[in-house]
Design a protein around this nucleic acid. Structure first.
Lengths: 144, 144
DNA sequence: TTTAAAGTCTATAGATATAATAGATTAATG
DNA sequence: CATTAATCTATTATATCTATAGACTTTAAA
């Protein structure tokens, strides 16, 4: 399960993708529209900014904006930033690999195979899910 | 990420699948062979027993054994029992559904689609991964 | 140049979940 | 009936997640 932090991040980013051409958006506005605790959102947006996903501007007329194009930001990136590994086991994780304590020799472990496949499929699907696709889908669904 | 509890459960079950025709196996033995804290394993096996995945026998010559055949127990079941939902979002979970607080109307939420697909693929792969397949794979890998 | 608005940063509190342990009880075997 | 091993209840420890508080910094507009 994704953490709340991660869900908040996704929703905030979708909102900012919607406002992509409208300059910086206040934390306050995002928090209200997406029902996210403001102070918590603050920390999340800051993290996304440090990861160069968002840009920010201080002072009056300040706020946050997408630093990358909506077509260049996908769910895989966001989840990795917020929650870490996407794989279900550390021993099959690409970005957060750690050896398993239980299975002595990884080479003969019969469990890893299924989890590698799950990881591959998950990365494929989440990697292909960009902010602009999510936004297009919302527009489509709202149209009905 | 799976919890330790869940990983312990999988390893213990694979071990019991290996000993499928050898009668009850002591907790102590499983704990030692798989390097799992005995008391923690106790709780795990008990839960699997209550879920009718394992059977048990008390007293001398007692222990735990697979109640179902190794081909009938798969990773999907085990994970659901130990960790709950397999889906990454509660609003796309089949067994542990809960509405999302952030998105007001689920019908027009553009985020859910990718996560439904991830869920489907994950269930397919984990559901097909049975204890006997895992065991066969281990024998195969050890053979090389 | 002052002031208000808005992001930045550090610290921490509270809640929840995870992981592990202890001890008393019950059941089966020989 | 004594021994062995599972069962059950309770508790502790640790870690992570979620959220909040408050002081500081930057910017833009009055």
């Amino acid at each position: 399960m994704l953490s709340k932090k991660c869900k908040y991040a996704i929703h905030a980013l979708v909102y900012l993708a919607e406002k992509y051409h409208e300059g910086p958006v206040h934390i306050q506005e995002i928090a209200e529209k997406k029902h996210i605790p403001k102070k918590f959102l603050e920390a999340i947006l800051l993290e996304l900014r440090n990861a160069k996903v968002l840009g920010s501007k201080k002072g009056k007329k300040g706020g946050y904006y997408l630093y990358q194009k909506p077509a260049e930001v996908n769910l895989m990136q966001i989840i990795r930033l917020m929650d870490g590994a996407i794989a279900l086991l550390p021993c099959v994780s690409l970005n957060y690999y750690e050896p398993c304590e239980e299975c002595r020799n990884e080479k003969t472990c019969g469990i890893r195979d299924a989890f590698s496949k799950v990881r591959d499929e998950t990365l494929r699907l989440l990697g292909g899910s960009t902010l602009d696709k999510i936004l297009k889908r919302e527009k489509l669904l709202e149209g009905n």
